[in-house]
Amino acid sequence: MLYFFCAIRCEAQPLIDHYWPMDLVMSKGGVDIYMSEDGQSVVCISGIGKTDMAYAAAVTFSLLPPDDSSCAFNVGICAGYKPGSLYIVDKVSDCDSGRELYPDILYDTGLESMEIRTVSRVINEGITEDVLYDMESSAFAEVCMRYMGPEKFALLKVVSDKGEGSVVTEGMATDLINNKIDIITKTASIYQAACAKADKPDYDLDPYSELFCCSASMSRELRALINYAIADGKDYEDLIKVMKEEAKLPASCRKDGKEMLGEFRRRLIFT
């Protein structure tokens, strides 16, 4: 599942439009959560500031728990040196706590990376060209680190102003995100595809556990043996078939099953 977190509706609207049709699955405590009809994309509008973002992210992940292939994105506008530019954040500094957080930058998204500093007030002074400023990133990153690995979330920020007191209207914010929506959603697809890569041996252990009359610990041992067989390219199903033909399986009782598990182990390793 893809999770998108935006502080305000005008930032989220281009994402909602992109993944439309979406249903409003929760609207409570200032947090709106939309989910696409296929259940694969979520857009959450958190409200402005760290507290709102932390609350919204925690609520969303509790309501719709991420799985191994899930990734999360904080999409929004920020203050920076080059208005209109889109960046992927490589370092998140919380200016209140001093804490620094680092999402992994592993995939070739073509985006320039930049540090972002999260502040609790609007920046009115001039800023340098190597730092972005916003009001939610550190909260988003903090919550994500509790739910997923640093390779599974990203902060995608479009510079809206140079922090010199200029007014950014809702329409301007929507336009800034909209202008980059193709790159943002393409980046999300890259993360999604990469996370889908993380595969593990997938099989139903239950029928085999029944064959060996497994206890919980025997089931764990059986799983380890089957994982080894898969890793070593050994045909464990054929081995079980042979043991069935020899009337060694199914086991008549747990004691018998334990003995057969030992036999299965021996044959798996040494034949």
């Binding site: 680092y102 992994d104 930058i105 592993l106 640093p150 390779e151 993380a198």
Partner: peptide, 17 residues
């Protein structure tokens, strides 16, 4: 340690980059 000791890291993913 702010980088090296982060929780929930993936050797599998990071080994590519």
């Amino acid at each position: 340690k702010d980088i090296f000791n982060r929780s929930r890291q993936s050797f599998e993913f990071q080994s590519h980059s």
